[in-house]
Design a protein around this nucleic acid. Structure first.
Lengths: 148, 148
DNA sequence: CATCAAATATACCTTTATGTCCATAATAGC
DNA sequence: GCTATTATGGACATAAAGGTATATTTGATG
């Protein structure tokens, strides 16, 4: 239901939210266990969507463009793998304008629920909770487990 | 978020729920606007999962194996495209047994929400509602709109 | 039993998602 | 300006989803 790409993007963003300074692509990839080459593509999308700022050269890397509290899970998911809402019946768009049949009303409602849940959760929240027993505290060395 | 395959399967199942006698694959495909060849594969999965009974030969076709009221949207989705729940953290399974990090708790909760919504809606419900202005009444000829 | 209409099974093709690799461009420090 | 380090961009490879085509099997009926 959540694409691999979105999952990777979320891991990277949570990691960045735990960081105080810029993190290189390699560092993110190692800690979050995302294939480095693929991660770099995902990071590019996050930069384009202005969720992350990038800096080349020594001391460079990636930094969140906004406060963790101001970035929702939905922001991240939409940046890399837009959730497509059902706004018109896929079967016969012309005949009924914006009305949906009962089936697609249900599907649409389920999607809306997910969007709401994702919109209500932000990176700041996730990082705060990770100081609880479930997750290790920041910052992590590459050898440590990011999610435990 | 909902795969094309699941969408097709749901259309076919709703169509069957509207039917009084067996419907051929071709009839289902035409009305639900699903590629016929692909639909036949999906129907096979629904038969294997015992949601549908099939009958070859003249007068044959597909029939729901249970009352529409006893088939949920979740039943159909799971038959063709199982929703995989997140039960262990994808990052480091060994280290923490069944505990999830905050991120994966959120994702898991969202999936659970969808499952609940899908489990609570059944085909009988959808068909009853379709007698309302939003959908045409049963049965349909292939030329009529299935979802309007 | 012959025939026709249906599902079933299999092979194959196309598109999209995921993943890899390498050349290039920018930036900091010397 | 040179070099090391970093992101960027594009080409390519692989895997999975979606889709097509066709031969085979099954069942009903005359």
């Amino acid at each position: 239901m959540i694409s691999q790409t979105a999952e990777y993007a979320l891991r990277a963003m949570v990691f960045l939210a735990m960081q105080k300074s810029a993190a290189t692509g390699q560092a993110i990839a190692e800690t979050t266990k995302v294939p480095p080459g693929y991660l770099s593509k995902i990071m590019q999308q996050l930069v384009k969507r202005k969720l992350v700022n990038s800096q080349r050269g020594i001391g460079g890397g990636f930094v969140l463009a906004r406060e963790p509290k101001d970035i929702s899970i939905l922001d991240v998911v939409n940046a890399v793998d837009p959730i497509d809402k059902i706004t018109t019946c896929p079967l016969d768009i012309k005949s009924h304008g914006l009305n949906l049949c009962p089936l697609h009303k249900r599907l649409s409602a389920a999607i809306a629920q997910v969007e709401k849940a994702f919109a209500e959760s932000n990176l700041g929240e996730l990082v705060e909770e990770s100081q609880s027993p479930l997750c290790t505290s920041v910052p992590l060395t590459p050898n440590q487990s990011f999610c435990q």
